[in-house]
Design a protein around this nucleic acid. Structure first.
Length: 216
DNA sequence: TAGGCCATCTGGTCCT
DNA sequence: AGGACCAGATGGCCTA
């Protein structure tokens, strides 16, 4: 599971319909494992898909296969199993709940990644940034912004020392100028537009965007 | 087809 | 005790 591009899965949970839920590429919904299938009612399983698990150790696979058998996949559940399996079923139930919480946690993490993608400028709009690309670009974007702020601060200090008009307009001009330069840098990275000091970080950031765009 | 990326499951550990 | 967090394992999908 994990894709929300298609209709809600039988076990669809609230996150899947949240507007901010991360959309994966054009992928079909993830196949449910036998363990997950124990959550679904009989008949909701997709018959066209294999029943092998998609993760977990051999031990846990064994647990899952036992679970599938215990859940009555082949016939009625024996009284003996019902009687002695209560504890096991309880642990299986706890495991299912834990899995669900973990899924929710990962979805929240992915939502945060998506939110991050949307606030960092990058050129390659046709393809979603991977997680590692997102983190790396974000880190360098922060660096570039920090450099910008430092530059602003250094240009502001002399104005504060000297008597005269308030530095507000100058700061705004500086900020506006930096913003324009950033946009030009990002947009013009492909054109080989270069800037000298003090945009070293910006230049590096743009170069990185370029390299990501090139797929290197 | 290999490699990259990802979702999911799982058990261990940490935290409240 | 139970939930959050983490990392390893596994398998599916996609692309070059």
């Amino acid at each position: 599971m994990g894709s929300q591009l298609e209709g809600p899965h039988p076990a669809t949970t609230s996150w899947e319909n949240q507007p901010g839920a991360m959309k994966t590429k054009n992928r079909p919904p993830r196949r449910r494992t036998p363990m997950q299938d124990t959550e679904a009612t009989p008949g909701e399983q997709t018959p066209d898909r294999p029943q092998s698990g998609s993760g977990g150790s051999e031990l846990t696979k064994g647990l899952r296969s036992r679970t599938a058998r215990a859940s009555g996949g082949r016939g009625e559940v024996s009284r003996r199993r019902q009687g002695s399996g209560g504890r096991r079923e309880n642990s299986v139930q706890r495991r299912l709940e834990s899995n669900e919480r973990e899924r929710q946690r990962m979805h929240k993490l992915n939502n945060a990644f998506q939110a991050l993608r949307e606030v960092i400028p990058h050129v390659r709009a046709d393809k979603k940034l991977s997680k590692i690309e997102t983190l790396t670009l974000a880190k360098n974007y922060i660096k570039s912004l920090t450099a910008t702020i430092l530059t602003m601060s250094s240009s502001r200090l002399p104005g504060l020392e000297a008597p005269g008009p308030a530095p507000g307009p100058k700061l705004y001009q500086h900020y506006h100028h930096q913003q324009q330069q950033q946009q030009q840098q990002v947009a013009g990275a492909m054109l080989g537009v270069t800037e000298d000091q003090p945009q070293g970080h910006l230049q590096r950031y743009s170069t990185q965007i370029h390299s990501f765009r090139e797929g290197s």
